[in-house]
């Protein structure tokens, strides 16, 4: 576990020593501040619009950070050849995959905390209340979903060596499973066989990231899913991320690396 932790801390250090992370952070902050300064609706509408915009920005920014960070980890280790001194130590490729995953996921968590604290201050200033428990649940579910996304980007990075196409593909897949995925089940009912069964199977096989998007429920002041439901969703995401990480390792472990 020492090795996995050591690898993950390097990932986190790299992220906060890179300029693009701060650019994204400042950009999100500025956009949120700009949204927060709007005053051409009544107070309720402003707060609602503010929440919507902020949460959308947080989702997009954290997705960008999660995917781009994970997509470049293994390819940049190979390109910069830092993988060689690392693998020359008693380090398994599974530990590399796990360390990279943990680093990217923790980096996403740190980013989310920064974003949500800022969001909380902004909303609290407008509404004069701060639903901390709801915020925590919202953030937790998003972080859990990012675990699956990071694992997916890592798998992509050992299949496609260039981080750019991998990141683009991951964005398309994540947006696809989030927005199109939930409707596949209904669409499959109206299809003839075997297309119907095939689509229904796909519906069951894809990760249901839409479960983790609680933005609408939160914005509309509806009741958020209970702890048991969140626990089940966490378990589902953990199983999915584990499967993706095992596939990443299976692909990476037999790859020849020439100095």
């Amino acid at each position: 576990m020492n090795t996995v932790w050591a690898i993950s801390t390097v990932v986190i250090k790299e992220l906060y020593r890179r300029k693009d992370f701060y650019v994204l952070l400042v950009l999100t902050t500025l956009l949120t501040l700009a949204a927060g300064s709007m005053s051409f609706f009544n107070e309720n509408t402003i707060v609602r619009a503010l929440k919507e915009i902020c949460l959308l920005l947080i989702w997009i920014s954290s997705l960008i950070i999660g995917i781009t960070t994970a997509a470049r980890q293994i390819p940049s280790e190979k390109e910069n050849r830092t993988i060689f001194p690392l693998l020359a130590k008693p380090v398994t490729r599974w530990q590399v995959v796990l360390g990279k995953f943990l680093g990217c996921w923790l980096a996403c968590g740190i980013t989310l905390i920064v974003f949500y604290v800022f969001f909380g201050i902004l909303v609290g200033a407008r509404e004069h209340t701060l639903p901390v428990a709801a915020f925590a649940k919202l953030m937790w579910m998003q972080w859990v979903a990012l675990g699956v996304v990071v694992a997916l980007a890592l798998l992509g990075s050992v299949v496609l060596s260039a981080p750019g196409p991998n990141a683009t593909l991951c964005f398309i897949v994540v947006l696809g499973v989030t927005f199109v995925g939930p409707h596949l089940g209904k669409v499959s009912v109206g299809l003839t066989e075997p297309a119907g069964t095939l689509l229904y199977s796909i519906y069951f096989l894809i990760p249901h990231l839409e479960w983790y998007d609680l933005r609408d429920i939160f914005i509309n002041d509806q009741i958020l899913p209970g702890n048991a439901a969140c626990f089940m969703a966490t378990f589902y995401a953990a199983a999915y991320a584990t499967l993706l990480l095992v596939l990443t390792w299976a692909r990476f472990r037999r790859q020849n690396l020439n100095t």
Binding site: V10, R17, R81, T82, P85, A88, P90
Partner: peptide, 21 residues
């Protein structure tokens, strides 16, 4: 076996280290 590398040190021909550290 990774344990085979517990007692070795390796110096590559070129420097391959994390430049941000």
């Amino acid at each position: 076996e990774p344990i085979a590398r517990q007692r070795i040190g390796y110096l590559p021909e070129l420097t391959y280290y994390y430049k941000f550290l």
